[in-house]
């Protein structure tokens, strides 16, 4: 089965590169499911106190789904885009459910505390971010995409630059802008 999936996703990705956008929608569930599966792996007790980097999750998903197959840069771009989208969705899901179950969850700390090992608390933070990101998407598509790729897929500036086929400088500028914009948006609420 593993064997199947990696072929399929690669095929589908290549299809997308060839202009078949419907394939995207076929990939989405695959990636999504895979990410969820991967995420749930860490739910065993021994991992309870670990933190997960979303980048790790995506990376793991990549291996599972693509394996050692080679992808064109386009395909990779699509993959990460999809993975990012999926990851975002997964987190939002969690947040929503968690929110609906807990009342008065209170944590409003948005800033990341490095000292606290980059924990973020998934409740309103993610939801707010999600909403804000949606808004940004309407105004500045590339910027929001960059945020998705960087934040949810964990890509670096250079990697993102490669994926989106623009210069790193451009990425940096958009990134800066996005951050500012999102922060402002979130804090205003």
């Amino acid at each position: 089965m593993n064997h199947d999936i990696s072929h399929n996703v690669t095929l589908l990705l290549n299809q997308v590169s060839n202009g078949n956008e419907l394939a995207l929608d076929s990939i989405l569930p695959l990636v999504y499911n895979e990410l969820r599966k991967i995420s749930s792996k860490y739910l065993r007790d021994e991992y309870r106190h670990h933190t997960l980097q979303t980048t790790e999750l995506v990376h793991e998903a990549y291996i599972k789904l693509i394996g050692s197959n080679s992808l064109s840069w386009e395909s990779r771009a699509h993959f990460y885009g999809i993975a990012a989208r999926s990851m975002r969705q997964i987190l939002v899901d969690y947040a929503r459910k968690r929110k609906s179950q807990k009342r008065g969850s209170g944590l409003t700390n948005i800033t990341l505390d490095k000292a606290a090992q980059n924990f973020i608390n998934i409740d309103e933070n993610i939801l707010d971010l999600n909403d804000a990101l949606e808004k940004l998407e309407g105004i500045e598509e590339r910027s929001s995409k960059i945020v998705e790729l960087r934040f949810f897929s964990g890509l670096s500036i250079d990697e993102t630059a490669e994926i989106l086929k623009v210069s790193p400088a451009t990425i940096k500028r958009d990134w800066n802008f996005a951050k500012a914009w999102l922060y402002r948006e979130i804090s205003q609420n």
Binding site: I120, K179, L182
Partner: peptide, 10 residues
């Protein structure tokens, strides 16, 4: 530090 390396508490 905003939006840098998000992680999720397991």
């Amino acid at each position: 530090d905003f939006l840098e390396l998000p992680s999720i508490a397991a």
